[in-house]
Structure formats: C-alpha cells, structure tokens
Design a protein around this nucleic acid. Sequence first.
DNA 1: CAGCACTGTCATCGT
DNA 2: TTACGATGACAGTGC
Length: 803
Amino acid sequence: MLYLKKYFTEGLIQFTILLSLIGVRVDLDTYLSNQLPPLREIILGPSSAYTQTQFHNLRNTLDGYGIHPKSVDLDQFFTTRRLLNQVRQLDRLSVPSPELSTWLVHRDPETVVSAASQPSPSITLDNGTGLEDVNNSEAPAMRGGGGAPESTYNLSGEDRTLGAVAPEDNQEQGNREGNADLTKEDIDLIDILWRQDIDLGAGREVFNYSSRQKESEAEKPSPEEKKEGTEAQESWRNGVNLQEAQPVDGETGESIPEQLTGLGSQTSLSLQECLRLLEATFPFGEESPEFVAPVVTAELAVANEEAPSTSQGLPLPPPLPQPVPQLDLEQQWQDIMAIMELQEMEVNNTSENSFLSTTSNSANTSGSTSESGSVEGFGLTHSSTLIHQDVSLHQASLPSCSQDFPTLFNPEIDGTSTPHPPLLRMSSSSNSSNVNSTFGATNLTGLFLPPPLNSTNNITSTPVLPDPFSSLLEESMLDEISLLDLAMEEGFSQAQASQLEDELDSDSGLSLDSSHSPVSPSSSETSCSSAASSSSTSATFSEEGAVGYSTDSESVTVEPEEGAVGGYQPEFNKLCRMSYQDPSQFHGLPQLDNINHNHTYNLPLSSSLDEHPELQIPTGKKIGREKQSKLQPQQDFLDKQSSRDERRARAMKIPFSNEKIINLPVEEFNELLSKHHLSEAQLALVRDIRRRGKNKMAAQNCRKRKLDTIINLEQGVHDMRRDKARLLKEKMEFIRSIRQMKQKVQSLYQEVFTQLRDEEGRPYPPSEYSLQYSANGSVLIMPRSMTDQQTRKPDKKQKDKKK
DNA sequence: CAGCACTGTCATCGT
DNA sequence: TTACGATGACAGTGC
C-alpha cells in the first residue's frame, strides 16, 4: 500500500506539475482511469502483464478482492470506463486524444497554406527532420515508423501546384521568403487559376510549367547544386508512386508515359550513376589519345544535362503482351492491397520526417527542381490518391495552426477529383510522450478547435474517401500488373521474370491481410498497428497492468459490480476474453471473430460469496433442511458455476476465500493460515488452491502474451510484405529509368556518331568505329577491332576470376 | 462423432 | 531454499 501510495503520489505530483507547466488542465482521475493508457503508465509504471509485478503488495488497494488484478474481466470494465470517460471528455479541454487528431489531419492541406502565411514554430517542431532523413531512412521505414516518402512527395506536388506553400518555408526562410509572403488571397487566386487550367483541359505539364513560372517569380532560383540532389529525391519519391508518376492527359484522360517527359526525374540515380550503369551495358574503351574527341564530350555532357527536355519526343517501345494471366489474381490483389497499405502507412508515418529540412536536399527545393523542367506530371494525380488514404487514428497529431482552418478551408477542394494533397503531418508514433512533447512546445490554446469546426471538418472530409480510392485502386492494379510487363520489357531473363513473379506472389502461407480493405476499419487498424505494435503492447496491457496499481476509486467501483452479480457474468467474460482490452483492435482479425466460447474463466464467484456472507450459500449446518432444499437448485447452480477448487474449498470448509488464498502476499497468506487453525488436509488444499490459482493466472497471461506475439508477428509480416511491394515498385521504377537512360544514350550516341567526321570530312562508318566512354567522362571514338580486344580482355579476366 | 478452440492443471525451469 | 512466474503439455469441456 505504501509502495503504491508513494509511487502514485510522486508520479502524480510530478506529472501534474509537468502538465501545469505546459498549461494543460489536469484531470488526473480521468487520465488515470483509461483515457491515456501510456499516460497512466508513466505514472503507474509498466504493464503488469509483461512485468513481474508484486501484485500481492498492492492487493490491499482493492477493498474486497472483487476482481482479480489480472482477471480478463477487467478488460470489459476498463473498456466501459474508457468509453464513459471519452463521452465525458467531449465537452472539456483535455490532452488531445488520438481520436481528436483524426479529423484534424484532414485539414492539413489548409494548414500548410496557413503555415506559409503564418509560420508556426510547431510545424518546425513536427517536421524537424528533413527530407534527407527521409531518404536515409527509407530502409528503416520498412519497420513502419520511418519516413513516408509519399507525403513528402505529395508535399512537393503541393508545393508545385500551389506555387508557394510548403511549410518548410519556415525553415528555409532564405530561399522561401517570397513564398512565405504570399497572402491567403494570393494562394486562393493561384488555386483558382490552377483549377481553371485544369478545367480548360490544360495538361499537367502546362500547368506545372505555369506553376513553375509562378514559383520562379515568387522565389529566387536555388543554387544549381541543389538541383541534382532534389531531382534525385523527388524522383525517388516518384519511384515510390509508380501510378502517381503517370500523368493523365487533361483532355482525353489518357495516361501519358510520363517518364519520357522527365527522364531525370524518374530515377534517383544521378547521371553519373546512370553512366556507371551504362558501363555495364556498353563496352567502354580505354582512353586512347589519338581518338579523343573533346568536342564530343562536351556535346554529350550538354545533352545529358538537357536530357529531360530533349527526351520528350522519344517514343515508348511497344508494350509486350502482359503476363498478367500468370499471376494469381488474389495474390495480385493482396499485393495491391499491400502497396496501398504501404502508402497509407507511409502517410501515417510521415510525421516529422516527411518534409521540412534545413538541408539543401529538402523538398523545399522542389521549386527549383521544377524550374529545371525535369520534374513534371506529379502533384495532382497522386494527391487525389493521398486524400483517401486517411490516417491512422492513433498516429495523427494536431497541427498547431488549426485555428486557421475556417478561413483557409475550401470545401470545393475536397469535392473535386483533384483535391489538394493533404499535407499530413502526423506524429510518427502514438507515443504519448511524443505527443506531449509536441504540444508542450506549441501554443496549447491553438491546438483545440471549437466544436462546430470539428463537426464541419468531419463532415466535409468524410465523403471524399470513396472516390479517390477507386482511382487509386485502378492505378495500383494497373501499376502492379504492369510490373511484370515492365520486367519483360526490360529484357529480363526468364529466370528474373519468374523471380519477379515469385516476389509479386504471396510467399507466406499466412493469410494475413487478404481480407483487409484499404477503406475498412481493419485497414486503419493495420495502418496504426505497425507503429503501435511496439506501443500496443503497453497500451493493450496497460489497463490490465494498471490494475495491480489500481487506485482506490477503481477498486471501489469494481467491487460492487462483482459482488452484485455474484461474480460471474458469462457474456461479460466472453466479451472481455477475446476483446482483450480494445475490441476495436481486433475487428480486422477475422480469426478472432469466430471465438465465442463461454468457459468459466477466472471467476471470483466463491470469493465474492466469501466476501459477502449475505450472498453466500449457507451450508447445511447453518440453515434448516427446508431452506436448504429451497436453495438446493441455487447451490447446484453455484456448484456448477464455481471452479473445482472453490467447491473443494467449500467442501473442506476453508474459512476464507479462494481469492484471498490466491492473491494474498506470502506474508499475509501465512498470517492467515496461522490465524485459522487448519487441518493438514485443509492446509494442503489451501496451498494447492493458491498454486493452481496463480498458475491459472500465469497461464492466462502466457496465452495472452502468446496471442499478442502472434498478432505482432502477423503485423510484422504484413509490414514486410508492404515493404516488399514498395521495394519492388521502386525497383521497377529504377529499371524503367535505366531503360529510358539507355534509350537516350543510344539516341545521343547515334546522333553524335553520325555527326563525327574524320580529317577528310567523311563520316565514320558505324561498322568500323564506335564511341567509347572513358571513366573520366570523355568520349573516344575507337575502331571496333580495338574495342573488341579491350572488351575481351576484361571478359577473360572475369572468367578467370570466376574460375 | 471428430475436430477445434478455450481453459484449467501439472510439471518443470528460471529468477 | 522458497516463492513465484513462464511455459509446454495434457486433459476436460463446449461448440
């Protein structure tokens, strides 16, 4: 008791001070009960389910042992209390809950706009990590907590379309002051013009060009050195969104092979890297001075620099027959779902990694990138896909400038087919400390929206969802279907193609997410569970774990309930058992839906009877036979309902409850035994009851843990499959880019070669001469005989190495 | 009636 | 050494 008191009071005081320091009204009773399990854990310590808590030291806090601290029955109780608390908190200011964050996320596009005009420090906070980190953390992002290129990418699109309004303005003031100075009217005007352009059938390139112009007017060109890095970054993001990189003709709606409009943008490989890749394809000769043609080198270099614009006219090779039928449709669907969930997850996890960077590689430089003309065609189509992707309810964080919504929110946007991309800035984790830190540094008064606005936002944003989903679905499907096609197109070997096919196929026997739909609640569950998987453990078990530390108020509440119902509620148990803290978390787990058992489980029946003698079925000695006969059916019922040990205890006339036997600390237990002079048989039974009772709880915990582990593993598999899909997509993008680069180099090669003349002004016959690239970037013209010799040598060397 | 899932119990091990 | 938790294995029970 003392331990709990000390622990609780100290933690409570500390936390109260903390909260008061940041200006949050403290309603600890509410928080401690259920609203914020992590919060409670901060105060009360980790969950007992995973930690070996000395419950018996805390048992005194429970007045009557009405419910066991580890009883699964508590789940329902806490769920009820949590819901009640949520309802009660509807009208009061409180630490923002994840639910609160949800609809705020929908308003983020406007938030960004407002951020441009009203730089907010919180945005800087939320997005402190730059794009560089996003790229660097691409691999770590597989784990679900990392960056979300889409959102960043989307931001770039937004940046481009709106011409001014990326929140990174706050960080790169030097570059973006012009944009930041744009007023809301300016932005609205730009937006209107933009939509008019779209309505008039202007292609995206046209629009982007104009937007680029606007941007160039609004801001000074970024340093040239930024161009390449930004290109790479944007194209990287492009690679992530294959379908989004496909622009649609403004008039016909046809899909334009967009990669030809911006070769450089389609890959994160720099030109040097591509040339390096080309070295593997084209025979590069050694430098031989007599054939050096510096002019050619220069030309080639220039041509390479201008690649994006010059390549626009290149036709696509005719598509090969699609190998779609080889793919199992269901597997394809799963992969599509995986990709879509990947995107959703990336959106969810965008958070501070998504954008805003103080480095030169930030998405902020997308303006300069678009000026280079190498990045075109995105910013609209993908934005429509983003808005439906919704967000994890548990990972969204509140934008600090949400009060700007009323003025900046344009309902039309949500209704159009090309809505502005919602710039989702969300907390990367559901960790409450994270949230608190975020809010701690922000103006708290600005965090909470007035209720009317809330409802409005909710209403306006919700109906948008289905539409973009279908479009994304189609795009994703087409995209995924085209992957193999692409692979074949790339001249992949049959083995490679089959490998790709395997990769696209589901590889695990687990049917983890086949039933998941991106728009179903299960999707949101999966989207959040990855990040929450680590925290879900604590959150999930916190309720139970907190029971061990439970406050008196809770205990008091528990006790009457248990006593009143005689300690057993079949439905209650049924619900709690599998609902397992938060039933909503398992809506997406079909394997749990069929569980409908009604076994008695952790029943405090006899204990409650013992605790409440008035409810106890009197033994034959205490009552007359008549009364006993009247109560006999009830006795039978109780016997049936009670556990074996309880019956045994009753039979052996153990003078205290099984609950006490099981849950008392050793000292008190021994004390109890010493108080009552029990026979050897009774003692043995009591010890057995204690042992079995503890083991029962241990088994329950063990199974719970096991189940949780399985769920987490499933989530891990799901995440990995999603990552696999993402990586496959990126791979395909790279392949596509490489192919385009090959084509471009080939055409340039032809162009250059045909223009070369020897000393007598005659063209070099292609059959006798070839251009060779040297490692230092120069281009040589060499006789093919020499080339063959030089290429054979490395071959031999390679063969020797292989031997 | 078989199969499955859940639950309780025991034995055992580790802390 | 004792108490206790974790866990595999088994059996009982209900569907």
